[in-house]
């Protein structure tokens, strides 16, 4: 029997929680390509993803969902277009506690939209932290249209990650329904 594979991409700025997101839901230990941070300005954490994170969710014998987390540092953006090919949809992670990364998040979102016209959702991560911006404030800061789905998220919490992925899948279905009426 041939196994069908589908792909979703988790993207966002440096330290927005992409690796944690994939780790929370993947049934395998995430194949991560982390390296020690080399740039002084980016020493918020000790390691960062340099190629991609790779997680897997086996639906049944013939369907597997792969989750790819993109590298967060801009100097690895040559990987993005490759990772975006053939994806079902994508999630843009935003660190709700770091407004200095909001502009970068918007830029990444626009880049991925340009690569592929697939549905996407924006996850306002780290909502459990006291200084997190609210989803409503983040929407204004990122200048997102009301129709773009933006969800509160805690990437280390599996239920929260499930909610984000489900919302993305609902968006895919909704888009297919819309096509029926076009």
């Amino acid at each position: 029997m041939q196994i069908q594979t589908v792909k979703m991409v988790i993207t966002g700025p440096f330290n927005s929680g992409k690796t944690a997101f994939v780790q929370s839901i993947s049934e395998i230990d995430v194949v991560s390509t982390e390296r020690a941070i080399s740039t002084e300005a980016e020493r918020i954490k000790s390691q960062t993803t340099v190629a991609m994170d790779f997680g897997r969710i086996t639906v049944d014998d013939d369907l597997v969902l792969y989750l790819f987390g993109t590298p967060g540092q801009r100097r690895f953006d040559f990987m993005w277009e490759i990772l975006s090919q053939g994806m079902l949809g994508f999630v843009v992670m935003v660190d709700s506690t770091r407004p200095e990364t909001f502009r970068e998040a918007k830029s990444i979102l626009e880049t991925f939209r340009a690569y592929a016209p697939t549905p996407y959702v924006v996850a306002a991560n780290k909502q459990d932290l006291p200084d997190a911006w609210s989803v409503e404030d983040l929407r204004v800061a990122l200048r997102l249209d009301p129709e773009i789905k933006m969800l509160p998220c805690v990437a280390t919490d599996r239920e929260s990650v499930k909610a984000v992925l489900l919302e993305l899948l609902y968006s895919i279905l909704e888009e297919m329904e819309e096509e029926l009426y076009e």
């Binding site: 599996r158 499930k162 489900l166």
Partner: peptide
């Protein structure tokens, strides 16, 4: 059908 299966599976994780 594929998206439906993914939704059902993710809903049931955990």
């Amino acid at each position: 059908a594929l998206v439906g299966r993914l939704i059902e599976h993710i809903q049931n994780i955990g």
